[in-house]
Computed example of a mutant assay.
Amino acid sequence: MNILVTGATGFLGGVVARRLAAAGHRVTGLGRDAARGQVLGADGVRFVPADLHDQAAWQAVLDQQDAVLHAAARSTLWGRWPDFVADNVTVSAALARASTRQGLRLVHISTPSVYNATGQHVQVSESTPIGPRFDSLYARSKYLAEQEVQSLCPDAAILRPRGIYGRGDTSILPRLARALRTGRLPRLTRHEVYTELTHVQNVAHACQLALEGKAAGLFNVTDGVSIPIWATLDTLADGLGAPRPQRYIPAAVVEGAARVLEGLAALHPARPEPPMTASGVRLLTRPMSLDLSRAREHLGYSPLIHPTQGLAEALEAAQEAQQ
């Protein structure tokens, strides 16, 4: 199968592109990082530099494909709304429209962040009512992107992987590691909080299943096992030789401080990302587990990597990064 992967020079896109190439598919990766693109070439992925805002730049490549994996996105908890719309909504709509016109299989990567403001936290299913309030601009934009994809390409599969981590991660574990090394991360709850993450290879596995199959609609994706956030942070701190979070500060106080920092950043002409965001604080204080029934039944998804193995690998990568 000829498969186009957007965001191929990013964390998830790169892993999926390599996995698909190793499985025998003819993979073309789009991205803006030429150096990373050259590395992809060494792994059997044809790299084409392209800005997704320029449809003419990717339309000719799309004409040669059987399927599209849309992994590119503005994935951050901070930014300007017009940028989120342009990068996440407008581009997704254009790819969905083109995929339908050309009869291509489309797999779109979304996020369970769309659930954060629903009040549902345990075994959350894809049928959970969403909106009109959202936890972040990112979540709102990804939900609107889903709406566009479902409307323009009804046969598309939309995956919602939660908390993608693993070797090569530039977001979750590296940010936590930096916070631990500074010794400034307080303990925000007096009780343990359980959540679910998704190893990048598990997401790549789900992507391959979705591309090779025909199932349509929304699919939650996780490692399938809940992990204790604060115990995991303690283990990460020990492995890095950093202090464990001990000083207790109520989450409401820290979240309030984050809102103040967000307000100050919003007043600055450059709108720099604040040291912490309210939605980022909530990720450490609110439980979340997802119902994987649809992915198991319709995609044939079963996690390949257990969090015990995945987090050990992530810790090893964090240790190597500080050497």
Rank of each mutant, 00 (worst) to 15 (best):
R97H: 10
G41H: 02
F134I: 01
R36Y: 03
V114W: 03
S127D: 12
W230T: 01
V149N: 00
T189I: 12
A317M: 10
M1I: 04
I172T: 11
D87C: 15
P112K: 11
L144T: 10
G224S: 03
V91Q: 01
R244A: 08
L40V: 00
P275I: 02
Q55W: 11
Q201T: 04
G7V: 01
T198L: 14
A34Q: 07
G37N: 04
Y165I: 10
F84Q: 09
E126Q: 11
S151K: 13
T232V: 04
I305S: 05
V203H: 06
A35Q: 10
A35K: 15
P272G: 09
H199Q: 10
A317D: 07
A93K: 12
T222M: 00
D63K: 07
A156Q: 06
A257W: 13
R80A: 13
V221H: 03
T198C: 14
E273K: 15
L283V: 09
A86S: 07
S92N: 06
L188R: 01
L20C: 01
A72M: 05
T128R: 04
P303W: 01
V193N: 00
V200I: 09
I3L: 14
A242K: 00
E255C: 15
L236A: 05
S127G: 11
E255K: 10
H298A: 14
R175G: 12
E192H: 09
L30F: 10
R162K: 08
H191N: 13
A71P: 08
R296T: 01
G79Q: 03
T118L: 10
G44H: 04
H268T: 12
Q120T: 09
Q323E: 02
V122A: 13
V89T: 08
V27M: 08
Q319V: 08
A42V: 11
Q59T: 11
G300H: 02
F84L: 12
A57R: 11
V193A: 01
R244C: 13
S151P: 14
V89M: 06
T100S: 14
D155I: 04
V221Q: 01
L315G: 13
V5R: 00
A35M: 15
L267I: 12
S293T: 08
D43T: 06
T111E: 05
T76W: 06
V124N: 03
E196V: 01
A139H: 03
A139T: 02
A231I: 15
R181N: 08
A314Y: 08
Q246Y: 04
E196M: 03
T9M: 10
P112L: 12
A278N: 03
T182E: 11
L267K: 09
L290I: 01
R294G: 09
T232N: 02
L40P: 01
A56I: 10
F11V: 04
W81P: 00
D43C: 07
E313N: 08
E313G: 05
P161F: 05
R97E: 13
